[in-house]
Design a binder for these strands. Structure first.
Length: 489
RNA sequence: GGCGCCAUCGUCUAAUCUGGCUCAGGACAUCGCCCUCUCAAGGCGAAGACUACGGGUUCGAUUCCCGUUGGCGCCA
């Protein structure tokens, strides 16, 4: 009764760890941490031909970045290893032998083509069909087939009248009868175990208490239960998570929005924001609380509160949440620490220059902070760093005209004579100038911003000008005036 | 083809288990107003769901049951 809570995730090292896998990992992790249990990482690499150890690194990196730490795994070891399925082949073989010896399994000598053909024939006649071929061939025929190079697959014998019942922690009672299942394959003709077989053996040997995985596996569960029974294992508890679908309501594909978790890292999502967002995709605490850090999530999480309906993955709210985390959930120091690599990466400033101008760069970043959905958005600040930026044609069209040019030309003289080129003095002189000329300040501010930054949108003009500096501001204004003269001539 | 899972605003969801508290609550997105030099951020507000459809059960159903439809998935 006092059984330790042990959960696991079993990703394939495909060189890709997407948002769906991340959410499954998160729910397993939250469940483990909430119950003071263990979170185990097992790599399902029986199908992978390339070096799974290299690609496993991607999984490690993604989980580490998200802050989902595991207690046992390929890199950490543990009492129940190895944690690579590819290193467990002998174990699967032993159990396969056991099932053969117990008369629970038989070798199937049908070729995939034959099975496919058989299936199509039945389907076209709208007849139910489940593949069973225990007594299909005589000993002679089998010998003949073996000689011609056909490799057999091992099939589990499903008792036709067997009723399989289990209580899913999310879906409630699920029932299925043996007649609706075919004699399913447990060892493929290439000698590799199927998902169902390897999974049952590993989960049992690793003393997994709760299997929390996607609903796509709910149809596999009765088969696995049959295996648990035949092998004499006691079955764990099951919880099948809804799946995350793309905006087209299809399963997330690489093509449609299913980006790797590490892509989110590169674009500048805050891991805590992604965790928070993912936690809410299929689960809620039951009230209106939405912004929750890991500690709070662990505290509140429960499988019972998972919504069984599939969720559509829409990143709009993630972007809002990320911005919210950037502004409110991390402090200034942390923000600067996170943003600087993106500044350096943008190529606007060299590392060397940065070291000399830390404070100046920090001020730019702070001005941009509430405007960043993702850290990568800092590229919008290009005009702070260089005079060589593009002017938005739309903005020029709006403010490159006689009236604006005249005003700016006059104000430019005033600016030139300004000794202390800071936000306060710039603002004061601009407002005074406008008052004298009976102009509305914004009639000068708007064109000035476009002339200096090339865009209509951005932080306050005076702070912006101060940071850009007097020389550059004057240069940019002159340049724009020339541009206007050229156009009108 | 068989079997399984699912069904509340555009999206994520609350209320559903334990029927009346709901002319269905919150958040994102959208729109409007305020703040304001613009854009964000922030504040306020609006619009948005006959709870997929159809039947039951009941005095009463978003909530329980059945069917239909649709979506998703499993069958090396």
């Amino acid at each position: 009764m006092n059984q330790e809570i042990r959960v696991r995730i079993a990703p394939s090292p495909t060189g890709f760890f997407h948002i769906g896998s991340a959410r499954t990992a998160l729910y397993n992790w939250l469940f483990a941490r909430h119950n003071n249990g263990k979170f185990i990482l097992r790599i399902e690499d029986t199908d992978i031909t390339r070096s799974s150890k290299d690609m496993t690194k991607i999984i490690f990196d993604a989980l580490t970045w998200l802050g989902l730490d595991w207690d046992e795994g390929p890199d950490k070891g543990g009492e129940y290893g190895p944690y690579f399925q590819s290193e467990r082949k002998e174990i699967y073989k032993q159990y396969a032998q056991k099932l053969i010896a117990q008369n629970n399994a038989y070798w199937c000598y049908c070729t995939p083509e034959e099975i496919e053909k058989e299936r199509n024939e039945f389907f076209s006649k709208k007849m139910n069909w489940q593949h069973r071929c225990r007594d299909k061939f005589t000993q002679d025929e089998i010998a003949h087939r073996e000689k011609s190079g056909i490799l057999p697959a091992l099939r589990f014998i499903v008792p036709l009248d067997k009723k399989i019942l289990f209580n899913d922690l999310i879906h409630g009672t699920v029932e299925k009868i043996g007649a609706d299942m075919e004699d399913f394959v447990i060892i493929k003709s290439d000698g590799m175990p199927t998902y169902n077989f390897a999974c049952v053996i590993d989960d049992h040997l690793m003393k997994i208490s709760h299997i929390i995985r996607g609903v796509e596996h709910i149809a596999n569960t009765p088969k696995q239960l049959l295996l648990y029974e035949a092998l004499g294992f006691s079955a764990p508890q099951f919880a099948h998570l809804p799946v995350i679908l793309g905006t087209d309501k299809k399963k997330l594909s690489k093509r449609l929005g299913a980006r790797s978790v590490l892509d989110y890292k590169n674009e500048g999502y805050i891991p805590e924001a992604l965790i928070n967002f993912l936690a809410l995709l299929g689960w809620s605490p039951g009230n209106d609380e939405e912004i929750m850090d890991s500690r709070r999530l662990i505290e509140l999480f429960s499988l019972e509160r998972i919504n069984p309906a599939n969720a559509i993955y829409d990143e709009t709210k993630l972007d809002w949440m990320n911005n919210h985390y950037i502004i409110n959930k991390i402090d200034e120091k942390k923000f600067l620490e996170l943003i600087i690599p993106y500044v350096l990466n943008s190529g606007f400033i060299t590392e060397e220059d940065y070291k000399k101008k830390r404070e100046w760069v920090a001020q730019i970043c702070l001005l941009m902070r509430p405007r960043l959905k993702i850290l990568k958005d800092i590229v919008k600040a290009k005009y702070f760093f260089t005079d060589e930026f593009e002017y938005e044609e739309k903005a020029l069209h709006k403010y490159l005209n006689d009236a604006s040019i005249t005003r700016v030309k006059e104000f430019k003289i005033l600016l030139e004579s300004l000794n202390n080129f800071n936000a306060k003095s710039i603002e004061d002189s601009l407002r005074n100038f406008c008052a004298e000329k009976s102009l509305k300040p914004k009639d000068l501010i708007h064109p000035l911003r476009v002339y200096i930054t090339g865009t209509e949108a951005g932080p306050g003009l005076f702070e912006t000008m101060e940071l850009i500096g007097k020389d550059s501001c004057m240069k940019r204004i002159s340049r724009t005036i020339e541009k206007y003269d050229q156009r009108t001539n």
